[in-house]
Design a protein around this nucleic acid. Structure first.
Lengths: 230, 230
DNA sequence: TGATCCAATTTTGTATACAATCTTGTTGCT
DNA sequence: AGCAACAAGATTGTATACAAAATTGGATCA
């Protein structure tokens, strides 16, 4: 198999990492799936060297779990990790949404609106994976508008992990509330209403968290001992 | 995660990364310094493969800057990045200190106290680099006590970058206020006074930020064109 | 003298080969 | 049959070799 590489991008390692990340975000790679170096390398037409670099990158983002002498696996966030991720998001995103509202420009508003539209279109087309991905990028875009690159990086990472958490712990029902909440957020941010934006983001994240089933291991247990023990 | 290497640890790549990180934290490697793969590899007695992995790791922590086909350099945070780092810390650390106060155990108190003591000893011995490093680990330890591994990782990264920021933008004076502030924090956290801990952390971070000279490029400009241009 | 082009050197990017480790299937013993 | 030790296979960890790119120094020419 050959890569259909973008001519503009020279860093193949980043490309491989990005394509793996997108596949994970869109739930085409399930949590726990093994990512063999040889296999991935053959799929993308690159050597193990660059695959390893890409996997290491994704490991830093906590999208894959690197086990020494065992290989790389799509991460399976535990319930505790899931709570931690949303705890971190609760600290970062509301205040960042407020900052974004205080700095937004008409151009930014258009960009945000297009994100929402794309998300809505994907959802309507039945491509929930892509819709979820776009939904996450909406959050990242807000941090970018707030002109906080460092916080934006953190949020990007948390959104990535949230995608895995949703894959593991999502309980069916309530799929549309997402774009509803995002629409309200856009309105507040575009209007420059920082206080309301902060408030909306806070409750939006709380909604997201409570829509998960974090009572127990929903799908796959982390260790066999834990799963089959007494 | 960034302690000096244990002999028990088998991951030599992590060891190299940790030793480089420590050297940066203690200001033995100055911002902007080039980290040649061959040179580093020879110093640590490993091949370029593991050096590259270590450098990639540090690049993800923003401790080194990886320029394609140019090599790795100790990062030189800009003034904007410096502000962003402290903005992120302001969002994360105060609330985390509050959580820590609500969960602290006597054992944790002892650990924190020993950190302070070590810091004080290093400062007294004139080893300001090590004192600074310990001072940072104090902040990370608080997040660990709060039982928030994800936030602790973020704070660890921000503390790392803060070390570089201090190397670049620190203006002499006020070296002791640090351990003063840390002592007050320990007292509040150990007493379980979350509100006060949050308050103290907030003002501590503000003190840190205002003790920097962020008006301009304190030491090294990012690009020659910018430095020598019209 | 000074500028431009070209070659030599150095350094990074990638692939491959070999070593170490883990998994797994088999064999032999009790 | 059940268990343990062992060996074969597969997969990752590391080193090295080669390719690509950038820097550097010198040579040529105006």
């Amino acid at each position: 198999m050959q890569v259909q590489a973008d001519e503009t991008e020279k860093d193949v390692g980043a490309q491989v990492a990005a394509r793996l990340a997108t596949a994970i975000h869109e739930h085409r790679l399930a949590p726990g799936m093994k990512l063999s170096e040889d296999e991935v390398g053959e799929i993308f037409g690159v050597s193990r060297t660059v695959v390893r670099a890409a996997l290491q990158r994704l490991a830093h983002l906590r999208l894959v779990d690197l086990k020494r002498n065992r290989g790389a696996f799509v991460a399976q966030p535990t319930v505790k990790e899931a709570r931690e991720v949303f705890e971190a998001r609760a600290l970062l995103e509301p205040r960042t949404a407020r900052s974004a509202a205080e700095r937004i420009t008409p151009t930014d508003t258009r960009i945000l609106q297009r994100h929402i539209d794309d998300e809505h279109a994907a959802l309507h087309a039945g491509d929930t994976g892509r819709a979820l991905n776009l939904s996450g990028q909406f959050h990242i875009e807000i941090a970018r508008i707030a002109d906080q690159a460092t916080i934006a990086d953190f949020i990007a990472q948390l959104v990535s992990r949230s995608s895995l958490i949703i894959a593991l712990y999502w309980q069916r029902r309530a799929a549309l509330c997402e774009s509803q909440a995002h629409h309200a957020l856009i309105k507040a941010i575009s209007a420059g209403d920082g206080a309301r934006a902060e408030e909306l983001m806070q409750s939006h994240l709380l909604d997201l968290l409570t829509s998960l089933d974090l009572r127990a291991h929903s799908s796959a247990p982390q260790s066999l001992r834990e799963a089959l023990g007494p």
